[in-house]
């Protein structure tokens, strides 16, 4: 069998879109971080797809690098979140938003 590559990219697009919606619509920072993870995952899937299309191992290598990036981002993001939690009791990004104006 082969997975039609178009369908694979439709999956990527849908996943990425879900992530973006989450990032834009949710106000809770934790959920926004999760949405960001979904988006990064979609990008990773895209590389696996492309790699399998060309039958190269390079796609998977980029995948490995992407999860490294994701790990570092999550680590920093959660550390920030812990620190922010000390300042505000909830994680509402709107309440964080005294900057705008």
């Amino acid at each position: 069998m082969t997975v039609p590559i178009e369908h694979g990219f439709v999956l990527v697009a849908l996943l990425w879109a879900i992530g973006l919606i989450g990032l834009l619509a949710r106000k809770n920072t934790l959920f926004m971080l999760m949405s960001m993870e979904i988006m990064l995952n979609a990008a990773a899937l895209a590389f696996i797809l492309a790699g399998s299309l060309w039958q190269q191992a390079d796609g998977q290598i980029i995948y490995i690098l992407i999860i490294t990036v994701a790990a570092a981002e999550v680590g920093l993001g959660l550390a920030l979140l812990i620190r922010l939690r000390a300042h505000v009791s909830d994680l509402n990004i709107d309440k964080l938003d005294e900057l705008r104006g």
């Binding site: 990425w16 990008a43 895209a46 590389f47 797809l49 492309a50 790699g51 796609g59 980029i62």
Partner: peptide
């Protein structure tokens, strides 16, 4: 990344 993936 998505852009690069499409180019790839």
């Amino acid at each position: 990344l998505l852009g690069f993936a499409l180019l790839y």
